[in-house]
């Protein structure tokens, strides 16, 4: 399994969606608060890096931040002009399992572009289709985390009410680097 987690943040850093695909010992011991604190750090890091990259990029270049690599894993990120950030945490050097047919189309693409393409796809084909088009969608009023207080969340839009997660899982697990 090479995909560890996916987070989706809005412009203000609010978590709109989060899902873990693997659990480590350390994570098992963390409670919800620590996990949400950790997400804030992830967003903070992406945000600051983006600002820094923006100021370092020469005139006319694209300041897009694509991934952050550490010894243990890579955080792939994709930011839309509307301020949505999708962060996908995988391990390094994902194994490219050969899927019959699936890879033939984009055969020349390197792993980075295929992650970027995948994130783009998640945005345009899954997020927009399932969440933005949902009649219940309120951009300012998304129920963030199922673990956060349930009582005062009545009437809020919950992404769980769409088939976003189902489609996301189906898409990610069809990817050659998923496991």
């Amino acid at each position: 399994m090479t995909v560890h987690a996916i987070h989706i943040f809005d412009r203000k850093g609010k978590t709109l969606f989060t899902k873990r695909y693997t659990t480590t010992k350390q994570q098992l011991m963390q409670d919800a608060e620590q996990v949400s604190e950790q997400r804030k750090l992830i967003f903070g890091m992406l945000f600051s890096l983006r600002e820094l990259v923006g100021s370092l990029t020469p005139e006319g270049g694209s300041p897009a931040l694509q991934s952050v690599k550490t010894g243990a894993g890579t955080l792939h990120c994709y930011e839309t002009i509307s301020g949505l950030r999708i962060a996908l945490y995988t391990n390094n050097n994902p194994v490219m399992n050969t899927l019959p047919g699936a890879r033939a189309a984009g055969g020349e693409s390197t792993s980075i572009t295929s992650f970027q393409t995948a994130l783009k796809y998640i945005y345009s084909e899954i997020w927009v289709e399932c969440v933005v088009r949902s009649p219940l969608y309120r951009p300012e009023d998304i129920q963030v985390d199922p673990l956060e207080g349930r009582d005062n969340n009545a009437g809020r839009f919950d992404i769980k009410s769409t088939n976003f997660e189902v489609k996301l899982d189906a898409y990610l697990s069809s990817m050659p680097w998923f496991r």
Partner: peptide, 23 residues
């Protein structure tokens, strides 16, 4: 409007019109 913008951005992106609709 707040919904339209995502529709526009994502459609423009996926049809490789990124150059027309960038920052």
């Amino acid at each position: 409007g707040v919904r339209c913008v995502d529709e526009l951005l994502s459609k423009a992106d996926s049809s490789n019109l990124g150059s027309a609709v960038t920052q």
